[in-house]
């Protein structure tokens, strides 16, 4: 198992929920039942997707990690292995889900 990288989100409460396991970019990660995908990804790391375009000195591929957390900015879309694309902040993480932060197509 890969060691857990630094997460962006920090859990402050509601930590007694049932743990679930999902795969993020091929690596098994732990989250809690009731987490959104955004939370599940961000307690385990800092990048949710890569921007398609550059600008601001950044090249295309710059990391993004959502912004509004309420389904408005659309900066948290991720792919699931079954081909679906979902908005991470408005989709609940489920046990066994396989998530890809890079756009597979």
């Amino acid at each position: 198992m890969t060691s857990k990288p630094r997460g962006q989100f920090v859990r402050l409460a509601e930590t007694g929920r049932r743990p679930i396991t999902l795969t993020i970019d091929g690596v098994a990660r732990t989250a809690l039942a009731g987490d959104t995908l955004l939370t599940a990804i961000l307690v385990n790391g800092r990048c949710v997707r890569r921007s398609e375009f550059g600008g601001d000195g950044a090249v295309a591929g710059a990391p993004r990690a959502g912004f509004c957390v309420m389904g408005a900015c659309q900066d948290c879309w991720v792919s699931l292995d079954d081909g679906r694309r979902v908005r991470a902040c408005t989709t609940f993480a489920e046990n066994g889900m396989k998530v890809r932060t890079a756009h597979g197509g």
Binding site: E52, F53, W77, R85, H103, G104, G105
Partner: peptide, 10 residues
């Protein structure tokens, strides 16, 4: 007319 989000160029 319809347009999608940006997708890998295929």
């Amino acid at each position: 007319m319809c347009v999608t989000e940006p997708l890998p160029y295929f």
